[in-house]
Amino acid sequence: MAAFGTVFMPKMSCSEFNGSEWSQPSLVASDQLTLHPAAHVLHYSSTCFEGLKAFRHDDGRVKIFRMDRNVARMAQSSRLLSLPAFDEAMLSDMIVETVRAFADEVPEAPGAMYIRPTHIGTEPAVGKAAAPSATSLLYVLLSPVGDYFASGASALRLLIEEEGMRCAPHMGMVKSGGNYASAMQPTLEAKAHYQADQVLFCPNGDVQETGAANFLLIDGNEVITKPLNSSFLHGVTRDSLLTLAKDLGMTVTERDFTVTELLERAAHDDCEAALSGTAAVLAPVGTLIHQGQEHRVGSGEPGPKAQALRKALNDIQWGHAEDRYGWLTHL
Rank of each mutant, 00 (worst) to 15 (best):
S136W: 01
S26K: 15
E264P: 09
R310D: 05
P284M: 01
A134V: 11
T253A: 13
L282M: 14
K226P: 01
S46K: 10
R157T: 08
G292A: 09
T258V: 07
P186K: 07
W22I: 10
R238V: 04
K63G: 00
R324G: 07
L27M: 11
P169E: 12
G60P: 01
R166L: 10
R73Y: 03
F149E: 01
E264H: 13
E209R: 01
V236G: 09
A29R: 15
S30G: 12
M12S: 08
L27Q: 13
G277H: 05
V145A: 02
D87K: 05
G235Q: 00
G319M: 02
S240Q: 09
I218R: 00
Y44H: 10
Q208T: 13
T278W: 01
S299R: 07
H119Y: 08
A39Y: 01
F102D: 11
A212N: 13
K305D: 05
G178C: 08
E50V: 04
I120M: 06
L262I: 13
K226Y: 03
E108G: 13
A75M: 11
A129R: 07
Q293N: 09
C48D: 02
F55T: 04
V252P: 00
M113Y: 06
V281M: 04
V252E: 09
K11W: 13
D206V: 14
Q32S: 15
A280R: 01
A3L: 14
P132C: 01
A168W: 15
L331S: 03
V297R: 00
P227M: 08
C167H: 11
A103R: 08
K311H: 11
A125S: 15
V207M: 02
L81P: 03
I218Q: 00
I160C: 06
I160V: 11
S151R: 10
H330V: 14
D219A: 15
G60A: 08
R56F: 07
L248R: 00
V207Q: 11
S299H: 07
G127C: 12
P144D: 05
L200E: 05
A306S: 11
L233E: 07
D206A: 14
A279R: 06
R116N: 01
T47C: 14
K53L: 09
G19F: 00
V28N: 12
D247G: 13
F4A: 07
T287M: 07
S182P: 03
F215Q: 07
S182V: 12
S230W: 12
G164V: 09
T243C: 15
S78A: 15
A212I: 09
P132Q: 05
G19S: 04
S20M: 06
G172V: 11
Y44L: 01
D58P: 05
G303Q: 00
L241I: 14
S151W: 11
A134D: 13
L159H: 03
T329L: 09
S20C: 04
